[in-house]
């Protein structure tokens, strides 16, 4: 045979395909962006027109006012405590929920409902949960912990279960072959395979929870968010700048630390 038949050449991509679907996809994306432009009221002109105001506003932030730095650091630590507990409770609850929403471990009639509940936990922003929990347990950090807990459970359960669904089934069968109980199969066959990923996801979630915890504070759920919100509302921009700088330093340090820990565990 000297030449591949024309049909085979086409089938295996001798000539690149120009698909109609591809072109339609790009057109749809362009339409979506154009449509959202109006809804989002994007006005680049305003940025230029009010440049003067912006620079005056920006000048108010400097120099940052660190007179009350002790309060800021204390509140920042409370934010950190909220994130620690919100993440810890989330991890504990996410593990069983993840196993129950993994399609390779449980039948459809279990994983579908569990997944929908996790979707609900994840779909609602921490801030909204915080406002709801403030009604239940009053103003303060505990409402923040509860809000992060629910949201983190939903997010980690999804990430964890996706890791479980990607495992190699053969070692699990190896454990099953010994006459092991299904819980033993999970503990000895599944968990060791997903553990590095789970740790990585949990640390990443902790980082984002520190950021979220500073925001849930704004609705009254304790921590640095309360201070930040009050400073902005009372036009104390120099103090706002100081709070923001402390927030940035904390978040950066935690990001760096958790990156280190992740590198060690894998």
């Amino acid at each position: 045979m000297k030449h591949a038949p024309a049909a085979a050449a086409t089938q295996f991509g001798a000539t690149p395909k120009r698909s109609l679907m591809g072109a339609l996809g790009w057109a749809a994306l362009a339409l979506l962006l154009a449509w959202s432009w109006r809804g989002a009221e994007i006005k680049p002109g305003e940025l230029i027109a009010h440049a003067g105001n912006m620079s005056i506003f920006a000048r108010d932030f400097f120099p940052p006012d660190f007179r009350d730095w002790r309060i800021y650091v204390d509140e920042m630590l409370i934010t950190l405590h909220i994130a620690v507990w919100g993440t810890a409770l989330g991890v504990v609850c996410a593990i069983p929920c993840a196993l129950l929403s993994a399609s390779n471990l449980v039948p459809r009639w279990i994983y579908q409902p569990v997944r929908r509940v996790m979707d609900a936990c994840r779909a609602i922003n921490e801030m909204v949960f915080a406002m709801l929990f403030i009604v239940a347990v009053g103003l303060g950090p505990f409402a923040g912990v509860l809000a992060l807990w629910i949201h983190t459970t939903g997010t980690l359960a999804k990430l964890y279960s996706e890791a479980v669904e990607a495992i190699d089934p053969r070692p699990v069968e190896g454990v099953r072959g010994t006459g092991a109980h299904v819980l033993e199969e999970i503990l000895f066959g599944v968990i060791p395979q997903v553990l590095p990923l789970w740790i990585s996801f949990s640390l990443y979630r902790f980082e984002s929870n520190v950021r979220s915890a500073s925001v849930v504070g704004m609705v009254g759920a304790g921590g640095i968010g309360v201070v930040l919100y009050e400073a902005i509302r009372s036009f104390q921009y120099a103090q706002t700048a100081a709070v923001l700088l402390i927030l940035i330093v904390f978040v950066s340090v935690i990001d760096l630390l958790s990156a280190r820990i992740r590198a060690v565990t894998i």
Partner: peptide, 23 residues
């Protein structure tokens, strides 16, 4: 036992062998 051994590669050899006792 199978061609691809079916051991849990991240666990120690000893732990893998101990899984034989799970029943």
């Amino acid at each position: 036992v199978v061609q691809q051994f079916n051991l849990v590669s991240r666990l120690s050899v000893l732990t893998n062998v101990l899984t034989g006792l799970l029943f």
